[in-house]
Design a protein around this nucleic acid. Structure first.
Length: 554
RNA sequence: UGGGGUAUAGCCAAGCGGUAAGGCAACGGGUUUUGAUCCCGUCAUGCGGAGGUUCGAAUCCUCCUACCCCAGCCA
């Protein structure tokens, strides 16, 4: 097979980069940037952008900057900055140099605004927000020129200086680029480039009371940093002509190019910052890092690995078409990773007592089980065994359905890594609930099956005394419908899955898990992948179910 | 409604004029002391629709349709 046949397809952004490299555009440099506004926590959609930007730099020996697009201090905070830095780091990417802020460039941006005024390409407009809206026109009606459009350079310079000096109230005037009020592209109808905002900024304090708009800040910041490929999402497509207008009309050091790709959309969840914030603020979840949240920090706490998230982004691909990715793809990615890397252990989530009537009551033995069925480098572990055991409630059925491969009256199953047992007696409480199973074990089945004998199933178990009490949090998808935010009739909050979290307090895991580190991950055999939650204490381990095992039993 | 985009299987996605990759899901079968993993197989005479160009079209042309984005002093 040739390398061409075996190599993975190259996404359209990478095709552009390769062509640029080939033609020597941007002097052969590849510089990207991940530019979040610090107004919320990063979510799975951002992961796609992070992977694309950092991944592109990595692939082509370029560099990627981390820049906070902090032009609107009203919505931003240091908490968000800290969380974003943490999340990008956790995903395993390293940015070039220091973390950058658009606010680092406020002076330069201001000077360029002055430059535009001097060139007669920007003016101070006294139209109120309402009037400006009216003058802008709409899709079918062209806009009209502002009555302040033809102020002299001198007047504009003076007015802009007074804006900057805090002489005007918010909303009383703004600086606008003089482009084309008739343009079919609304972004070109004399866009606002500076507004007055008497708000303290988390980085620059009270230094400024005028702040640049996104359009005026973004491209120029890219240029300042020497960005070559400015990758953003599709909704900024209409902004590209404006992005280019500023680059062409300002004495910027280089000419970055903007490219757009489609946002990641996942079913059974939401990625709107507004709604995620609402879930947190109204306490529908425990916080931004609640394991049910599609945030990076939530996924991390849920037990997802950076490798799985990166693999997922890779599998999803990069295109310009809007689609909705199935949650199953995300789950497949984490299963693939954890199957290879997570040590196995046994944990009985919903215990039911099993007493071995023919096993000496005072006897105890230890079995040696592999930590991984295929990877012997992961070593072995010791698991204690005695006459008093615990098995999973759902592994016993008084009246087993067809093809049942678990325990039932009169039937035998293997206790994983130990003996084959047979259920002889079912003990119930006053309400008729099964509370204990009296079983007998077969000493000849220790470790392996005798000649010609094979029980029809294998179940997990734990020693009643020598096991560790723990709390298990079974997480499921947060919403019951594919597109929670897509229903005009029903608020997304009404679509929250009432069973998205089930807490079990009587679970017991094998002794070796005692003291397991927060964030360590395990496969609880036959039940799923679990990660140790930060809520764990010395007295009680808390496990989060990351994802169940695939279950093909119907 | 003016402008800008996008349509390939249930979902994501390759393809760039030479006869429809791959992944997820699903469905069969094999191995298995996890109903897991792993392995093998099936899954688009078809590329939003209709015309056209061509020996040959998912790829080029024309028209049509559907969906997404834009009328913040948000990003």
């Amino acid at each position: 097979m040739s390398t061409a046949e075996s190599s993975k397809p190259v996404n359209f952004i990478h095709q552009i980069v390769e062509k640029d490299l080939q033609q020597g555009t941007h002097d052969g440099r590849v510089v990207t940037r991940f530019p979040p506004e610090p107004n919320g926590y990063l979510h799975i959609g951002h992961a796609k952008s992070i992977c694309l930007n950092f991944g592109t730099a990595e692939k082509y020996q370029g560099a990627c900057n981390l820049r906070f697009d902090d032009t609107n201090p009203e919505k931003e905070s240091q908490e968000y900055i800290d969380s974003i830095i943490r999340d990008v780091n956790w995903l395993g990417y390293q940015w070039q140099g220091e973390v950058r802020y658009t606010s680092d460039y406020f002076q330069q941006l201001h000077d360029w605004a002055v430059y535009l005024i001097e060139q007669g390409k920007a003016y101070v407009c006294d139209l109120s927000p309402e009037q400006a809206k009216e003058y802008r026109g709409n899709f079918t009606t062209p806009g009209r020129n502002s009555p302040f459009r033809d102020r002299s350079v001198e007047e504009n310079l003076a007015l802009f200086a007074r804006m900057k000096n805090g002489e005007f109230a918010e909303g009383s005037c703004s600086l606008r680029a003089k482009i084309d009020m008739q343009s079919p592209n609304m972004n070109l109808r004399d866009p606002m480039i500076y507004r007055i905002m008497h708000t303290r900024h988390h980085q620059t304090g009270d230094q400024w009371c005028i702040y640049p708009m996104y359009d005026f800040a973004h491209g120029q910041s890219d240029a300042i940093e020497g960005v070559t490929h400015s990758i953003c999402t599709l909704e900024f497509e209409d902004h590209r002509p404006l992005y280019e207008w500023f680059i062409e009309n300002l004495p910027v050091p280089c000419a970055p190019k903007q490219y757009e790709f489609s946002r990641l959309e996942l079913n059974y969840t939401i990625t709107s910052k507004r709604r995620l914030k609402q879930l947190v603020d109204e306490a529908h979840v425990a916080g931004w890092d609640d394991p049910r949240m599609p945030t990076i920090s939530g996924l991390r706490r849920r037990g997802y690995t950076p490798a799985a998230l990166r693999e997922f982004c890779d599998r999803v691909g990069v295109t310009r078409s809007n689609g909705v990715v199935d949650m199953g793809m995300l789950e497949a990615a984490i299963r693939d990773d954890l199957d290879k890397t997570a040590p196995r252990a046994m944990c009985v989530v919903r215990p039911i007592k099993v007493t071995l009537t023919n096993y000496p009551a005072d006897q105890q033995e230890w079995f040696e089980l592999p930590n991984h069925p295929k990877d012997e480098t992961m070593g072995q572990r010791q698991v204690p065994f005695s006459a008093n055991l615990l098995i999973e409630e759902e592994d016993f059925a008084e009246e087993p359905p067809r093809k049942w491969k678990r325990l039932a009256p009169g039937e035998a199953v293997r206790l994983r890594g130990a003996y084959v047992i047979t259920c002889n007696e079912v003990i119930k409480d006053a309400e008729g609930n099964v509370v204990e199973l009296k079983c007998s074990y077969d000493p000849d089945t220790k470790g392996s099956n005798p000649e010609g004998y094979k029980p029809n199933g294998v179940i997990h178990w734990v020693c009643a005394q020598h096991s560790v009490p723990c709390e298990v949090r079974e997480y499921d998808r947060l919403f019951t419908v594919e597109n929670p935010a897509g229903d005009k009739e029903r608020d997304f909050l009404e679509c929250i899955n009432p069973d998205s979290l089930v807490v079990l307090n009587n679970s017991r895991c094998e002794i070796g898990l005692q003291g397991a580190a927060v964030e360590s991950r395990f496969q609880f055999e036959r039940t799923g992948y679990f990660a140790v939650d930060a809520d764990s204490t010395a007295e009680k381990l808390v496990f989060n179910r990351t994802v169940t095992l695939r279950d093909s039993w119907k």
